[in-house]
Amino acid sequence: MSQPSRLMAKDLSVSFGKSSVLNELFVTIPDGSLTVIVGPNACGKSTLLRSLARLQSVQKGQVVLDGKAIHRQSSRSVARRLAILPQMPTAPEGLSVHDLVVRGRTPHQSALRQWSKADAAAVANALDKTGMADNAHRPLESLSGGQRQRAWIAMALAQDTDILLLDEPTTYLDLPHQIDLLTLVQKLNRETGRTVAMVLHDINLAARFADHIVALKDGKVHREGSPAEVITEQTMDQVFALPCTVIADPVHGTPHVIPA
């Protein structure tokens, strides 16, 4: 809690109809680090991330960005500081990678000022950083799942925000592509100093790539801290009801969960 944070949730409650998903939740996303939100299915991981990105209407409490309630700020001004890549995003057929990345510049543009030097530089930089420059003119649907996800991340990068939120960016990718994508995200976090927060299903991948882990259970933060602090046999049992052994990953030294 001592770390500085521009993005936090205070006393946040969200429910869908009668079922409550988030329940008076408090969380802070530490600046400049890579935070991963984990938890069992239907624990509210995605709902929390969507709430942090003002995509979710909340019943109680608020999300605070830069000291002000996020829903009281103009959406455009929020979009210049915070980018979100939703789960399984879709694009119209035929859209090229380049045109997709250009759309990431929207909060910096208007219908009458559609292109500036800063736009060109940000798009080129985003394509370069994600290794998509060579595929820039290919239509999105002609790419493999892993490349397509890189293109979407390039779009979020082009938005040129300090904070980047990713909702399960590895869904439907095979293991090599999951590693590839998370390595890219980690590199972006390290090289550009962006704050990254994402939802991941895989605990071992979370432990390997995260600086900070938030474990949710029943719409509340059950435990948060460094991977070594959160990924323990006790927490796994409490959060996932998963009896397991946690060992140190022999290669990376990060905690590794071995289910019993």
């Binding site: 969507r50 990105a53 003002r54 995509l55 103009s74 959406s75 455009r76 001004s77 929020v78 979009a79 210049r80 980018a83 979100i84 890549l85 939703p86 995003p89 879709t90 694009a91 119209p92 759309r103 990431g104 929207t106 909060p107 543009q109 208007s110 219908a111 009458l112 559609q114 938005q159």
Partner: peptide
């Protein structure tokens, strides 16, 4: 004039909002 926001709305509601459009 609406073509600019419409080409963003063509992706998804979440992306439209995420890009700062009302």
């Amino acid at each position: 004039w609406l073509q600019f926001p419409l080409s963003r709305m063509a992706m998804s509601d979440d992306i439209t909002t995420g890009l700062g459009l009302p």
